[in-house]
Design a binder for these strands. Structure first.
Length: 237
DNA sequence: TCGCGCAAACTCGGAGAACC
DNA sequence: GGTTCTCCGAGTTTGCGCGA
């Protein structure tokens, strides 16, 4: 028989629920303690208090593996909703004070990584209470994150077609051929695309947006590429 | 042997009561 | 109103046991 609601409210604390959620998600007292900046006994004590209050075990150890009980699963649902509501409340309260707040999950493809910091500087100046989480990946990684709905905004060069997306072009991304200083092509005033593509090329890896753009362009021009070398980043190229 | 969790003892800081 | 004392909650440290 569980406690009456008023007694439950009196004995439960948000701190206990925060610690519970960390243990639940990280599946370990030690990991939860590290993530919260506590020691393991402090986490253990919070969980014990919570279990005493709820009169239900939340975690069980079989050997060295931590298992979550059905009560923990149910509590996790409840706490997740509660914390989400608290977060919304925090955002609303900040909005009432005329300040936007919250998290912005931003993903940028490699080629955009040199531009994004300049954009973020202005953005942070205007919206200081928004936490920006930036992930830099290649195009394939960005598409995967898009499929998993992991980001609020994705900055990429070639927007995939056939998907219900809203895209806003905001910057040109010009691809410029570069040759070594001792190359015969570099000594000429101009050269044809065929002459350039007949040279051994350094290309980004498959899945890269700039490589895809390059391949699409070559196909359009019906130009066959010579032997090339793949490098995994712009810096390496 | 190492990593992890538990228990006990201790420390620290905040809140409230008592006193001047 | 300010100071001191006491209590309590939350945390750390230390030592121990257990299992891979």
């Amino acid at each position: 028989m569980s406690l009456p609601l008023d007694q439950l409210i009196r004995r439960l604390s948000l701190r206990q629920l925060q610690v519970f959620l960390a243990v639940y998600e990280l599946q370990g007292y030690k990991k939860a303690a590290n993530s919260l900046g506590l020691t393991q006994p402090a986490v253990s004590a919070q969980i014990k208090q919570l279990e005493d209050t709820l009169e239900q075990p939340l975690f069980e150890y079989v050997g060295r593996k931590l298992y979550r009980t059905r009560a923990a699963d149910r509590l996790c649902d409840c706490v997740g909703n509660l914390f989400a509501e608290l977060k919304h409340m925090q955002i609303d309260l900040n909005a009432m004070q005329g300040q936007l707040s919250g998290d912005l999950n931003l993903c940028a493809v490699n080629t955009a990584q040199y531009v994004v910091p300049h954009l973020l500087k202005l953005f942070k100046h205007e919206f200081p209470k928004i936490n920006v989480n930036l992930k830099v990946v290649n195009r394939a990684g960005a598409l995967e994150r898009m499929e998993n709905n992991q980001d609020d905004i994705i900055i990429m060069g070639m927007v995939p077609t056939g998907k219900p997306l809203v895209s806003i072009p905001f910057l040109d991304n010009e691809l410029i051929p570069v040759v070594p200083t001792d190359s015969q092509l570099g000594k000429k005033d101009s050269c044809t695309i065929e002459a350039f593509l007949s040279q051994p090329l350094l290309l980004r890896e498959k899945g890269s947006g700039s490589r895809l753009a390059f391949e699409v362009y070559s196909q359009e021009k019906r130009i066959r590429l010579a032997g090339n070398m793949e490098l995994g980043s712009n810096d390496a190229v």
